[in-house]
């Protein structure tokens, strides 16, 4: 049996420690997704905890149709989307962290500016396109897994991802950053 399923069954059987094992296994991935969605470390930390608590509260409803991992991503992304809807804010934290220290070699500064542009370009993408890039490129989820998490077909994921990459390239080109092959 899958290790995640074993942990879920242990938890349902009354072993509360199984929660800790599941959190330890996925906390870094969930935090990274939520950070990329919100662009804020504090929000990402809070939402990571919220996502795990919601997952464990609803774990009895997990039927095992998809993997526990994609199910957990689904919950985390819903938590992230709800948060963004309720609390749209300017994402300055990353920009500050990247641009804050202008000391060092010129190449480092240019590299930092380049990253800020990429991040901004990513943020300008429509929500579902951005999610497709986050899940596919950052999290390395397959098309099928991404489709499960986003609640759409694999074809839709491919389309979102394709449009996102195209748009991102255009945005970066406009700002004078061509992707180096």
């Amino acid at each position: 049996m899958d290790e995640d399923l074993r942990l879920v069954e242990r938890y349902i059987a009354g072993d509360a420690d199984a929660v800790e094992d599941l959190v330890m296994k996925y906390q870094r991935q969930i935090y990274a997704v939520l950070y990329r969605m919100t662009g804020n470390t504090e929000d990402a930390r809070d939402l990571t905890q919220t996502a795990f608590v919601r997952a464990m509260e609803g774990v009895r409803g997990f039927r095992g149709d998809s993997s526990f991992k994609t199910w957990l991503y689904q919950i985390a992304i819903n938590a992230g989307l709800n948060h963004l809807k309720q609390n749209r804010r300017q994402e300055v934290e990353l920009e500050e962290s990247l641009m804050g220290h202008h000391s060092g070699a010129l190449s480092t500064i240019i590299e930092k500016e380049r990253r800020v542009s990429i991040k901004k370009g990513l943020d300008e993408l429509p929500e579902r396109q951005r999610l497709a890039v986050i899940l596919r490129a950052y999290e390395g989820l397959s098309c099928a897994e991404t489709a499960q998490v986003m609640g759409c077909t694999e074809g839709a994921v491919k389309a979102h991802y394709h449009h996102a990459v195209k748009k991102l390239r255009e945005i970066l080109k406009e700002r004078g950053y061509a992707i180096r092959p």
Binding site: A16, D17, V19, E20, D21, V23, M24, Q27, R28, Y31, A32, Y35, R36, T41, A44, R45, T48, Q49, F52, V53, M56, L94, S97, R115, I118, K119, L122, V133, A137, Y138, L168, I179, R180
Partner: peptide, 24 residues
């Protein structure tokens, strides 16, 4: 490779160590 190079800032060891217990 370019876009993946933007890493999420590490919230620190304390966060990773305490989160599992907090959730539980």
């Amino acid at each position: 490779t370019e876009i993946v190079s933007i890493e999420a800032p590490d919230p620190g060891d304390l966060f990773w160590k305490t989160l599992p217990r907090k959730v539980k």
